[in-house]
């Protein structure tokens, strides 16, 4: 079943059309990856789903309900959480306060405390630094915090924008293992945007390839990773 569906989405920045009519479906329980190069329109897609950008045309459906009428915070209330490009943690707040911000839409104190412990189990390094200002964390730790913060809302769908950006290969490995684990153990549905096609296709079930605002190809992760075009353009083969 399609949990999230993007239909013929067109988005423009002034006169520049960044998305020229893209469609994609995210099925319940899967990791779907959207891969593409610089400026392809990946971030624009996620920002439009989150309500930060208004499309010129097209529609976005969550469980059949159009999201276009909602404001960003209302979309979060529906369970669609966006881990933004560049992490965007609150630098002047502590690690713990950042996690509390993640639970902003919730008010069940016990549940929040429980989920915070879960995040700390997932990322023990955050627990050691819970009273440290987020601005003083390393890039990898900030990415962990950004993911942990998103999990604090108990999401239905997680939108992740280039979690591998700027991280050392070991850390990328670690973050991707976590993403896979979240999907397998908790059944979390994930839309993963990546330039690192190699890593993304390893953990994703299906994928779409986006180029200059259009979907070029889509298929299962296996199909894409053996596709000669994809290999040539994105897998360095």
């Amino acid at each position: 079943m399609n949990l999230l569906e993007v239909r013929n989405l067109r988005v423009a920045y002034g006169a520049i059309e960044a998305l020229k009519g893209i469609s994609l479906e995210v099925r319940e329980g899967e990791i779907l990856t959207l891969i593409g190069g610089n400026g392809a329109g990946k971030t624009t897609t996620l920002r439009t789903i989150s309500g930060l950008l208004k499309p010129v045309a097209g529609d976005i459906l969550f469980q059949g309900d159009s999201l276009l009428k909602y404001r960003p915070h209302e979309i979060v209330q529906k369970g669609i959480i966006h881990v933004p490009e560049g992490r965007r943690v609150f630098a002047r707040m502590t690690v713990q306060e950042n996690l509390e911000m993640g639970a902003y839409v919730r008010s069940d104190k016990d549940g929040i405390a429980e989920d915070m412990e879960k995040v700390f189990t997932l990322f023990p390094r955050l627990k050691e630094r819970r009273n440290q200002l987020a601005g003083t964390l390393s890039g990898g730790e900030q990415q962990m915090l950004a993911i942990g913060r998103a999990l604090m809302s108990r999401p239905r769908v997680l939108l992740m924008d280039e979690p591998s950006m700027g991280l050392a290969p070991v850390l990328v490995e670690e973050i991707f293992d976590t993403i896979r684990e979240l999907n397998q153990k908790q059944g979390l549905t994930i839309l993963l945007v990546e330039q690192n096609a190699h890593m993304a296709l390893q953990i994703a079930h299906r994928g779409y390839v986006i180029e200059t605002g259009r979907i070029r190809l889509h298929g299962t992760a296996k199909e894409l990773s053996t596709n000669p075009e994809v290999q040539k353009a994105y897998l360095g083969g």
Binding site: S50, G51, L52, R71, P72, H73, V76, Q77, I81, H82, P84, R88, V89, F90, M101, G102, Y104, V105, R149, S153
Partner: peptide
């Protein structure tokens, strides 16, 4: 924007 993405109005 990050605040909005956390569900802050």
């Amino acid at each position: 924007q990050a605040a909005a993405l956390m569900g802050v109005n």
